[in-house]
Every structure is written in C-alpha cells, then in structure tokens.
C-alpha cells in the first residue's frame, strides 16, 4: 500500500527545475508564466526548485553549445532517478534558427535524453503545462 501511495505521489508532486541553455528568454518567461495566478501549476503540485538534487523534471530552453553542454549534462546527472526531461521551444528541440551557428550543437537531445518535446517560439504556457503532464505519464508508467 505504501508503495502504491509513493507511486501515486510521484505523479502528484513533480518538482521542476528550469535550465536556460542560451535561450532568448522568450521561453523562459513563458515557463515562469506557468507559476503565475493565471496558470497556477502549483494546483498539480508543481514546485519550481533551484536545485537539481531536489528536482524531478528538468525543463530546458535554448540552444546547446559546447560550453553549457557540460553544465547541462552535470545538472542532469545530479538529478536523482526517476526523472524526466522536457525540451521547450524551437531552439531546445533542434537549435531553431541558430541551428547552423558555428557554436551550436543543436537540440537538447544531443546532450541528454529528452522525454517530451514542447514546440513553439516561444512555447505557450498551456503547451508547457501539457508537456509536464505528459512527462508525468512516464512516472505513471513506473507504477507496477
């Protein structure tokens, strides 16, 4: 019973950590918008934490370059399992319009495994919330 409660709780308490790989801040503002009274993701138990060691879901925005790829990888490694990663916005998905730049590696999935892709430039808060809920399905999938 305890195990079931824990499994259920996973989906009810996704603590998110937001990492900006070099975004234009458009997506970042939309991520923060989710926390405002307008969208209020805390309804679903979502809490924005600043520490990978406490986080369950990593939200990544922006393009990856060789410099911040190390940091991204490190933060991902410091998150204890089970964890999920959501790439947000065109840049996070593929590099977006910066894809061909000399210093851009491409999308987030070039560095760490991504579970959910949320498109948009910038991504809408509704889409981000939808992405988080979809990521929870991964935790739901751990049941059993």
């Amino acid at each position: 019973m305890l195990k079931k409660f824990i499994d259920n709780s996973r989906a009810k308490s996704p603590w998110i950590m937001h990492f900006d790989c070099g975004s234009c801040n458009g997506c970042d503002i939309e991520v923060l918008a989710c926390l405002t009274p307008m969208y209020d993701v805390e309804r679903f138990g979502v809490v924005n934490v600043g520490n990978p060691k406490h986080a369950d879901v990593l939200l990544v925005t922006g393009t990856v370059n060789p410099r911040n790829a190390k940091v991204l990888r490190n933060i991902y490694d410091q998150m204890p399992d089970p964890k999920g990663v959501i790439a947000i916005g065109a840049c996070g998905l593929s590099g977006g319009i910066f894809r061909e730049c000399y210093n851009v590696l491409g999308g987030i999935d070039k560095v760490i495994p991504v579970d959910i892709y949320v498109p948009g430039c910038p991504a809408k808060p509704e889409a981000i919330i939808d992405g988080v809920v979809a990521a929870l399905a991964k935790f739901e999938g751990l049941k059993g």
Binding site: F5, N8, K12, G45, P80, D81
Partner: peptide
C-alpha cells in the same frame, strides 16, 4: 505527496 515522492527517489 511530496514526502512520499521523495521517499520513492533514488
């Protein structure tokens, strides 16, 4: 829920 989740983590 939060605490239960924390106990389920690695």
């Amino acid at each position: 829920y939060d605490v239960a989740k924390l106990f389920g983590k690695v």
